[in-house]
């Protein structure tokens, strides 16, 4: 049980960020994280470490989120008026060198909505790589795909997000 606490201190922020970013629903995401901790506790004796601990744990989180998203029959997304970052239970780190003419909160909310509109595969890749800072190899291990597929998903996701960002910055 002590080891579980240690693991949560180490990997908790990544687990919570991943679940909340993918599900965009704080309550559901927290259930996923708690379920994942229980599963990790149950399966830990059989963990042989051929994969990294971080990718193993994040893979469980990602799979649980996928199951929940599949069960959502209709997902219209959040209303425009709602702040998608606050609604998902995410927080914003203050950014250095930010153009003061731009409303940072508004820009990040628009970006979050654009991430939510991405196809699920691209969303997973971009969150793991760019939000959680995993290497491409770790993203591939977490998602159970090849590095080439990660690169292609990342490229497509970033192109879409850049277009959104460009139109936002051009406003």
């Amino acid at each position: 049980m002590e080891a579980l606490g240690e693991l949560y201190r180490e990997l908790g922020p990544a687990m919570v960020s991943l679940a909340r970013s993918l599900l965009r629903n704080r309550a559901e995401a927290d259930d996923v994280v708690a379920d994942t901790l229980i599963r990790v506790h149950d399966k830990a004796p059989g963990f042989r470490g051929e994969r990294g601990l971080r990718t193993w744990v994040l893979r469980i989180v990602a799979n649980r989120c996928r199951d929940l998203l599949r069960r959502r029959r209709f997902d219209a997304g959040e209303p425009e008026a709602l702040d998608p970052i606050a609604h998902a239970g995410l927080r914003v780190e203050p950014m250095a060198e930010w153009d003061r003419a731009l409303d940072q909160g508004k820009a990040l909310a628009a970006l979050e909505r654009a991430i939510a509109r991405l196809p699920r595969e691209q969303r997973e890749a971009v969150i793991l790589r760019d939000r959680l800072g995993l290497s491409q190899e770790e993203v591939a291990e977490t998602l159970g795909i090849r590095v080439g597929a990660v690169k292609s998903r990342l490229f497509r996701a970033r192109e879409t997000l850049k277009r959104e960002l460009e139109s936002l910055l051009g406003e």
Binding site: V16, A34, V92, P94, M95, I115, G133, K162
Partner: peptide
């Protein structure tokens, strides 16, 4: 520049590991 800005914006959003979640999982175990 756009690439850099995008990556910085993506990394600026995250979440903290709330102790309540660990407590909840431990209670269930």
């Amino acid at each position: 520049d756009l690439d850099r800005k995008l990556v910085r914006m993506l990394a600026a959003v995250g979440a903290d590991a709330e102790p309540a979640l660990l407590t909840r999982a431990r209670a269930r175990i």
